[in-house]
């Protein structure tokens, strides 16, 4: 079984000399879950972006290791699935086309066979799979983001505002996914929603910038 560990050592982030957060350290391994909380503008999304390699920290180090072997920074994207408001799908393609394009670019080959259909069914947008994404509602786009994030079976799932734009049924599907993820990999959620926070064992409150062991 793959044993994955995500280690964060004293990371800080500044934008134009304005400190967003500093000295955040924690380590997460298989079956760990972490909630990042804090008021608007506290840096929840910035920290989520840093964790998945979209932003580089001003100071500090992030390392990801699989079975105690460090994964190069350039390959982190293979192990992370991200659902976030700043992730956008290609509007001119259908939901199915988006997933197929992503599977091909990820070079998943036959590993992805059948997965796009299964994921579209799981997130309840299979009926609209051939419609262009520009015709989707914001909730449907959020569901498609989940399907895209789970396409490569990521060991680490990072969810920024996980249930934003979702109806009750959609939120229930996401909560089920979060429960499954805490049993097989690492789950990180950036939210202030009490219903989502139930799924995280550890917590970082960016207002206080606590660190967890």
């Amino acid at each position: 079984m793959k044993q994955i560990t995500l280690s964060i050592e004293s990371i800080s982030k500044e934008f134009n000399r304005r400190i967003i957060f500093e000295n955040i350290s924690f380590s997460l391994s298989q079956k760990d879950s972490l909630a990042i909380t804090g008021r608007n503008g506290s840096g929840k999304s910035t920290l989520a972006k840093i964790l998945c390699g979209l932003l580089t920290p001003t100071k500090g180090k992030i390392s990801l290791s699989m079975n105690e072997k460090e994964i190069p920074a350039a390959d982190i994207h293979r192990h992370i699935g991200l659902v976030s408001p700043y992730i956008t799908m290609y509007d001119e393609f259908s939901g199915m086309e988006n997933l197929l394009v992503f599977a091909h670019i990820r070079n998943l080959g036959s590993a992805a066979d059948g997965d796009p259909e299964r994921l579209l069914r799981q997130f309840g947008i299979y009926e609209r799979r051939n419609d262009e994404v520009r015709t989707y509602s914001s909730g449907m786009k959020q569901r498609l983001k989940y399907a895209a994030a789970m396409l490569h079976h990521p060991e680490i799932l990072i969810l920024d505002e996980p249930t934003a734009n979702l109806d009750e049924e959609g939120a229930a599907t996401v909560h089920k996914l979060m429960r499954v993820q805490t049993g097989v990999g690492i789950l990180i959620i950036a939210t202030n929603d009490a219903k989502d926070l139930k799924f995280a064992v550890h917590n970082i409150d960016l207002n206080k910038v606590n660190s967890v062991a």
Binding site: L54, H77, I87, T88, M89, Y90, F102
Partner: peptide, 16 residues
């Protein structure tokens, strides 16, 4: 402009 840069960054390395 469409905000798909982050999506693409999460899919593959920069060189491809």
């Amino acid at each position: 402009e469409r905000g798909t840069v982050a999506t693409l960054q999460l899919l593959t390395r920069p060189t491809p």
